[in-house]
Design a protein around this nucleic acid. Structure first.
Lengths: 188, 188
DNA sequence: TGACAAAAACCGACCAGACGGTATGATTAT
DNA sequence: ATAATCATACCGTCTGGTCGGTTTTTGTCA
């Protein structure tokens, strides 16, 4: 007779806790370490409860991916709206969103896990593809000068480095690079 | 009475085939799809044979990682040696090596899998860390102006995009970006 | 408003297959 | 003869998913 029976039902909270737990497991143990048991235990829910909210592991993955994609889209939209200079605003928002405070811990690593996973997970790949296409369509066409592309690629590279933790760049140095990239977007 | 008993023993070839097979499995099914059975079958070797060459799955991973790191180091060294202009030669080599013909198919995806894996696989992380430190030491200190760092980050981003296959950039456009990055390294 | 049926939320035991790894034996190379 | 190279059979554990049951919530109707 588990106490979760007695507790007030709050399915939305449980669902959120499960997503959060899944994110943590992925970051800590990788996608190969993501098991339903681990997620359920970490969220304080039984496996049956987990499967009630997410019919399968694949569904759990897709929902989690949808979650972080939605978060990034909100970040980007917000930054663009707050930017007085329309020229290059998308790239600036793109850069800034990477360093925004996500509700998921180590969101960059999480994002990277999906980035690789989708290369051999068709539904996930489609999901991300549509998301990106929709993003571009919503915020107008992108700058596609070599320099603009270089800046955007650099943001990706910077983000990736944060995942690896290999080259130890101090926070100050990192901020300096980000500032430099932002500054460059005004000189397209 | 398997035919591999009868065949002439060529342990080095078998070992190479196993690494190659492991690489293919990782690219096609991800690290969560990497199983000893799959690797053994693809290489045409029994599981016992596999375990004879690589004592465990972890060892197999580390050896494969060592292999591709060695390959990249060779690429970089070669490009630096062939570069008449010493200034920025490391960054140019860094860029070019990403688009060199590796002996592993889809080496970029393979590399990316390791890049994420090492964030929660301590031995792998140490391995990569030492490799990178050694690389930097061997080829002199790096350029660390904001612009130089931006170019290097952009190379990472470009490489990452090739893994995702999301934004469809034509080979010509890709080459144009690479050329642009190379060109920029002469203006540090 | 209250009874009550249906649906939603959740648990816990269970299963079939997959997985990493071991043990042992067969064959070849040195 | 000894070591190296492989195959085969096997084991304990883990994993994704199923199933039936229990409690709570919600909708309905008198």
């Amino acid at each position: 007779m588990n106490e979760n029976y007695r507790k007030k039902k709050q399915p939305e909270l449980v669902r959120a806790a499960l997503l959060e737990a899944a994110a943590e497991v992925i970051v800590e143990k990788g996608l190969s370490g993501l098991t339903l048991d681990a997620v359920a235990e970490r969220a304080g829910v039984s496996k049956g409860g987990l499967i009630h909210h997410f019919a399968s592991k694949q569904v759990l993955l897709e929902e989690l991916n949808r979650e972080i994609l939605g978060e990034y889209e909100n970040f980007i939209s917000g930054y663009i709206a707050a930017d007085p200079e329309p020229r290059g605003s998308f790239i600036r928002a793109y850069i800034r969103s990477f360093f925004s405070q996500s509700k998921f811990k180590d969101a960059t690593k999480l994002f990277m896990a999906f980035t690789f996973e989708m290369s051999h997970n068709e539904p996930l790949h489609i999901l991300c593809g549509e998301w990106y296409a929709n993003l571009v369509e919503k915020h107008g066409e992108m700058q596609n000068s070599p320099k603009a592309q270089m800046i955007q690629y650099a943001a990706d590279g910077l983000w990736m480095e944060e995942c690896t933790g290999l080259v130890s760049v101090s926070p100050a140095e990192r901020q300096a690079i980000v500032d430099y990239l932002i500054q460059q977007t005004y000189e397209l």
